[in-house]
């Protein structure tokens, strides 16, 4: 009798568990789809003609691959698409390279000896800078670029974009885990500062440098406001800024907008999906420290 009760109970809890799993997976999948759907709709709409979308906005698969939108955006407002793509790549890559080197070295120097004259002021200056609402910092950056004669130049845009706050915190977090004794030991052995950096720090910092580079790349790729404000013409526009001008000036062309959005988003999605663990981990670390 007790045997039967036990199996009955076991069966009931097994049914309950299956039911619970089913409900959980259904809810989680529905939510995940809500987050991904806009990207999917963008992708599908880029390959469907305007008439087709008007007649059936919710269709999940294109009737046939309509590539007219990509021909339309081959030139936007007289500037070839390749120019925007080239600017995006050059500005993102160089701003990321400069930013990771300068921020990494800076965070390292601040970790090595935070109490040197001026070091604290540099730290506080940086913290003050990131507290200033970024969008509003761009307005005075326009004045500064004007005075430095950098307005409308790619170099000016690159330098302005090279300061990525999150990168600083990723490095600070990492250096906290490096024991000072290790560096002390190397110094007693007579290693120079340069040797300590290149022979000890850089090899162990390789993973964090990679993470910082990825995060800076992703964040710089999506930057648009500084690029727009510091440009004097479309010759320094990146893909997101081209998208902005398409959105304001030629807003009626829905399909072309979706095609350009797709081109702007796809590189990021590929990089992110391939490196998701690293990227999401660094956002958490940065958030906890920030």
């Amino acid at each position: 009798m007790s045997d039967g009760a036990v199996t009955d109970q076991a069966r009931r809890s097994a049914v309950r568990a299956t039911l619970e799993s089913t409900v959980l997976y259904t809810v989680a999948t529905a939510i995940a789809l809500m987050f991904v759907y806009p990207f999917y709709w963008m992708l599908v709409s880029a390959f469907r003609s305007q008439e087709a979308i008007l007649s059936a906005p919710l269709r999940l698969i294109p009737e046939h691959l309509d590539l007219t939108a990509f021909q339309t955006i081959a030139s936007i407002g007289g500037t070839p698409l390749s120019s925007f793509a080239f600017n995006s790549v050059v500005i993102t890559v160089l701003a990321t390279a400069i930013g990771v080197c300068a921020t990494g070295l800076g965070a390292y120097a601040l970790y090595r000896n935070p109490r040197l004259p001026l070091f604290t002021s540099v730290r506080y200056s940086f913290l003050l800078t990131i507290m200033y609402p970024h969008m509003l910092l761009v307005i005075p950056l326009y004045f500064v670029s004007y005075k430095l004669n950098l307005l409308g130049s790619t170099l000016g845009i690159i330098l302005v974009m090279s300061l990525v706050p999150l990168i600083f915190f990723i490095f600070v977090q990492f250096f906290r885990s490096v024991p000072q004794e290790m560096i002390e030991a190397a110094r007693i052995d007579g290693a120079s500062e340069w040797q300590i950096l290149t022979l000890i720090i850089v090899p162990i910092a390789k993973p964090v440098i990679l993470t910082a580079t990825l995060v800076a790349f992703l964040l710089n790729w999506k930057q648009w406001f500084p690029v727009m404000v510091l440009s004097t013409g479309p010759e320094t526009y990146t893909l997101p800024v081209a998208l902005i001008s398409l959105n304001t000036e030629y807003g009626i062309n829905f399909q072309a907008t979706m095609a350009l959005s797709t081109l702007t988003v796809v590189p990021v999605v590929i990089v992110f999906v391939l490196t998701q663990q690293r990227v999401m981990g660094s956002f958490m670390a940065g958030a906890v420290k920030g």
């Binding site: 080197c101 300068a102 390292y108 001026l118 200056s125 940086f126 003050l128 800078t129 300061l163």
Partner: peptide, 14 residues
Amino acid sequence: FLAPFAVLTALFGI
């Protein structure tokens, strides 16, 4: 080591 970071912060922050 700190100089580039300090210059960037001064020019494009402070």
